[in-house]
Design a protein around this nucleic acid. Structure first.
Lengths: 136, 136
DNA sequence: ATATGTGCAAACTGTTTGCAGCCGC
DNA sequence: GCGGCTGCAAACAGTTTGCACATAT
């Protein structure tokens, strides 16, 4: 995934492909661990000395509105971001503090939402102990 | 549900039944609309002139730890509270801003969590348009 | 040329914490 | 009397906003 590709993805989603937005999106694509805004800020500001928090938030909001990024609200008081917009669930391990993806069968998902309600998005969050941590 | 019952519920869950904790729990039981801490604060401080935010938060945290109340994180940056601790999902309507409960079949729920992972809690959040709002 | 994006600082919101006073066993 | 609870104020974290400057078409 090279820079040029990313910029054309942004463009095709109606997002002006600025350097900063491309960097934020590139970071999310190459670090699919659901980072927080602060994590992205620290990583990018280390790489590019001038990269403000404001711009991170601005870029993330633009990417979310464009449908390229989804917000993961599995931890209260701190948003995490995910460039994988396919249907999937999230599992937060309380021991290792990682957020894991897991698949959700499409037909199960559609059966969950109550009749008459029109969902725009669905978030499925589990919290507990992950596979690795429960072995120890 | 009278006060005496509530205090005995608190006691049986290892929570010292102070007046304030009972009021908070009573409010949640009688207002099953998933209020925020601020909503509870405004309601109770109107009824009882001295009722600090600190105490609301303290009481809520104690109730959550005791397993009597669950946190609903469907709206970023603001926790909502629910005295219904049975398994159920939440639907946030973007038009009327209400949070609705809906049932989840037990077997569907157990099929969602990936093998090897030990869930402690599960939150299923839908966001969209509710039954009433989509009719208009 | 003009609209849009960036970045600093400051504001804001929801929540937590420190600490003094109070209450109930 | 003592441990725990309350409540004020202040701190705190994450996020948003106001505004001046920079940038790109």
């Amino acid at each position: 995934m090279i820079k040029h590709d990313i910029k054309s993805i942004l463009t095709s989603h109606g997002v002006r492909p600025t350097q900063q937005r491309a960097e934020v999106y590139h970071y999310l694509l190459t670090h699919p661990v659901h980072p927080s805004a602060d994590t992205i800020y620290k990583a990018l500001s280390a790489k590019y000395p001038v990269f403000s928090r404001t711009t991170i938030y601005n870029s993330l909001n633009v990417l979310v509105e464009a449908g390229l990024v989804r917000i993961v609200n599995i931890r209260a008081g701190e948003q995490h971001f995910d460039a994988n917009t396919e249907n999937h669930g999230h599992f937060l391990c309380l021991k290792c503090d990682e957020i894991y993806d897991f698949d959700i069968m499409e037909d199960i998902l559609s059966g969950l939402c109550p009749a008459g309600y029109q969902p725009k998005k669905c978030d499925i969050y589990f919290t507990g102990t992950c596979e690795n941590c429960s072995e120890n």
